[in-house]
Design a protein around this nucleic acid. Structure first.
Lengths: 148, 148
DNA sequence: AAATCAAGTTTGGCCTGCCTAAATCCGCGC
DNA sequence: GCGCGGATTTAGGCAGGCCAAACTTGATTT
């Protein structure tokens, strides 16, 4: 097992999807990983082998893929992060497509401190719907203004 | 001039720094670009030539580098985006190092809609220091709690 | 058991961006 | 006109990720 120079963005994407697939269907197969990440199967095989190398996955050729303890830990953190971002973007009230695309982009770049702060912001707004409503109203106005 | 398949993150970084250097010192030279981006000079020359190819820069060997109209437009947008993010991160009250690192990471991944919404959020807080203070107080508390 | 087929894998190749080292080139100041 | 620092070229390399084409495997079907 090779040392880990901090999971790359791509690594995180793979782990995230694999984790999701396992949660959803109980297993993760190359075809589905490929489909979910919109890449080809050979790329998946190659990457899966590297992830196994690095100790994130248990992998047996032609058999199957599971998360190691380490992989599961990382995947859980990624999921947590993703959820914080989802909640935050809901506050911003953006079309789901935009939201998802942006989250995919930024989720690999945020430090734990920032994430924590962001979570705090979300908590704040979720516990203060009055403030949130006020912000939303303000947004509405400026959007209307831009459309003039 | 080659067609532009949307400026890559690296392209944006170059344009951003070059723009900054020009604003600061009136010109942008390879040594300084290299220093600012923490890469080597030959890499800069290569990239600068590609950016000229793509119509972002006016480039004359051994002479100098300036932004084209197109380059300037893009750079200005990048700068605007960066400033919105700075203001936002200030609200989150994070150590400058973390802030800068995270901004560098995410700035290439945000859609205009998200940016606009974020700007709205910043405006909201900046126009409502009372609300901001309340949020800050809440943050303080949870941080203290974590330290127990 | 043989055939078949989908899924998995291997191979070879490509592209982006970065690096190094060594050589050369240019403009400017003395 | 010489020299120096900055700029550029050349040649060679590396890592991360991606792909298409060809091949292999496990499972199902007959």
């Amino acid at each position: 097992m090779k040392a880990d120079p901090w999971p790359s963005a791509t690594t995180e994407d793979y782990l995230e999807r694999i984790h999701e697939l396992i949660l959803e269907k109980g297993y993760a197969r190359a075809v589905e990983i490929a489909a979910a990440l919109r890449i080809r199967q050979p790329s998946v095989t190659a990457m899966v082998q590297k992830l196994a190398e690095s100790g994130y996955l248990n992998y047996e050729k032609y058999r199957g893929i599971t998360l190691t303890e380490k992989g599961a830990r990382v995947a859980a953190a990624i999921r947590e992060r993703h959820m914080i971002l989802e909640r935050f973007f809901v506050l911003l009230n953006l079309p789901p497509t935009t939201r998802d695309k942006d989250i995919e982009g930024i989720e690999h770049c945020l430090s734990p401190e920032t994430l924590a702060s962001l979570a705090g912001l979300v908590d704040f707004f979720e516990s203060r719907p009055d403030v949130l409503r006020e912000f939303a109203r303000l947004r509405q106005r400026t959007v209307r203004k831009r459309e003039d």
